[in-house]
Design a binder for these strands. Sequence first.
DNA 1: TGCTAGCCTTGGAACGTTCCATATTTACTA
DNA 2: TAGTAAATATGGAACGTTCCAAGGCTAGCA
Lengths: 358, 358
Amino acid sequence: MKTGRRPTIDDVARQAGVSKSLVSLVVRGDRHVSPERRASVLRAVGELGYRPNAMAQGLVQKKTRIVGVLVSDLNNPFFADVIAGIQARARAIGYRVLMSTGDRQPQHEDEAIETMLQLRVDGLILGSPMTESAQMVRASKELAVVVIGRPARAASVDSVADDGAAGALAVVKHCVSLGHRRIAHIDGGEGAGATERRVGYEAAMRKLRLQSEIVVGRGAYTEAGGHQGARELLDRRPRPTAIFAANDLAAIGALNAIEEAGLRVPQDISLVGYDNTSLAAMRHLSLTTVHQPRHDIGQMAMDLLIERIRGVRVKPRRVVLAPTLVVRTTTAPPPRDRIVPSVRRGRPNRRMSTVKAK
Amino acid sequence: MKTGRRPTIDDVARQAGVSKSLVSLVVRGDRHVSPERRASVLRAVGELGYRPNAMAQGLVQKKTRIVGVLVSDLNNPFFADVIAGIQARARAIGYRVLMSTGDRQPQHEDEAIETMLQLRVDGLILGSPMTESAQMVRASKELAVVVIGRPARAASVDSVADDGAAGALAVVKHCVSLGHRRIAHIDGGEGAGATERRVGYEAAMRKLRLQSEIVVGRGAYTEAGGHQGARELLDRRPRPTAIFAANDLAAIGALNAIEEAGLRVPQDISLVGYDNTSLAAMRHLSLTTVHQPRHDIGQMAMDLLIERIRGVRVKPRRVVLAPTLVVRTTTAPPPRDRIVPSVRRGRPNRRMSTVKAK
DNA sequence: TGCTAGCCTTGGAACGTTCCATATTTACTA
DNA sequence: TAGTAAATATGGAACGTTCCAAGGCTAGCA
């Protein structure tokens, strides 16, 4: 780490024998510059190792061409693809992406947001934030804000999220079609979109005439949260025959708890996750789950943000994506079905209609 | 998004009826300010919603109190804990952390680094970068640089990494002690530290007189890389009885490939990963792997960076951590042992000494 | 009373850019 | 040939802070 003064645009100008204004033009690629001067400026830039100071630029331009992305949890591979989508779009239009995380702690998230605001990023994408909505609104007074994973309430904030209720309904229907009735849910606590999924689960249970079987274990969007929620559920008698976890991470935690209890998935208990992360797709795990188009979500979020930044749109947009169920091998008919061999691999639909008719 | 001009320090000064210098003092918590003035400044700050402009501050102070962190792969949960460690230390001393990723593409990583340099962050932590060493050296001419996961070569760059050769040796010894001889390696390609692990594997094999059994499949620090490397190895005849993957992610990919081939782990093939990520610890996977103290690594990297930033140290430091083997359930004696029932659960050491004596 | 030593406060110069208005040169048109 | 437009180039004023030197005030002390 050499600590000699870094070369400035003035140094380059002196070396190249031109004005700093001209250096500025060359560096920014303006075309009204004579080839000779351009060449000598570029040479000076190379010789001195000049690198424009983004802070000085930002100060005078009143924009940074930086978007900030808050990631609620780096342990969740969900965000890897979302961010890839964001970056792809950002790169295409010459924006830079800087990330930050609050480790799922609202206070830390607020600090991270504050940092971004002080840096005067042009826009902010909040990935499944834990922080409360008031913070977003506050931020949205100052810059463009898009939230991912939970529907925004404020008119100044756009959002991209899947339809958690629809996803939950698909899960419950799937379980019912396999013959399950005691379908429990492990919720995502304060996590983004967790309420939609839980309420969606409850509504789906009611819709399928299973309101008396509604059971929700307290969890979180983490392995530990899923583990704890599952323990709570496994202690109940009668035990649920299917567990719908709020996300894949929680499902893995639940799987651990189930195996610790000496039970097998899916023979004794069926298990469903949410998000269809790379984890769920692991052949070894092969988790039935709900798919969200992560890369698209990222791209969409960036598109919305740019519209806001450019001011081409003022009205709020709530993008709601239709989730799809991905059936893998952690779901199967409930154990009691197994005593009737002929029903074991029976057509799911018949059983579902039976339940509906009840 | 309201786009009225944001309040500046001058607005606050006017509103509070003091000079902007005084506002600056109050905002930064200087104690030589009278209580009344402080109160009125604070009131004005609240009323106007003033937020200091970090760019203007950085410009005049010639420092930002920001450290940049490059994450090579957001899919790898390895970095979640490392970053938690970095953040913990940074928070304690009033630094902010901004992250960036190049999605394992050297060119994108270079761009991310360039962004950080233009922003004039005070220091840079490179998490297992794919970019070549020359880029780091270039960056280290301008600011403090610490690299994680690979030993630095340049005198201007510090590093925190585990002893890949020692880790590889522990893995090979463990496999040999179980009775394996055909122990293959899936390498990490261009990934940080991959060379150390591969070379360490080869050295360990030679040390244990198994040089004729050295086989390396081409892979990467990703699930896909591990999958491909495993396919390569599984095609060989005779097939290896144990596979040592360059990291946990690759091990998972290998596991998929092994199961696709109709083989079982550990009955037919033993599998070992590296990093002891949360993935490996999953009860359902229960991967034998090599542990790295991730949180400590992050803290250590931040400590080194701060020393450099503060200029209290000029000489380079290479922190090398001793890895430890974590034996779980993906390793077992090779299949041919199974034909001799009495040996099936025999003491590993005896078998190991046998191999050594050969 | 005069002196000194803090405390508190301030104006203006920096920081490294871009933007703007203007100057100069060149090329084209009538 | 003069006049005009376009292409090039430039100096200085911003941008929003902190830093620095200096000034006023108060209190304590001889």
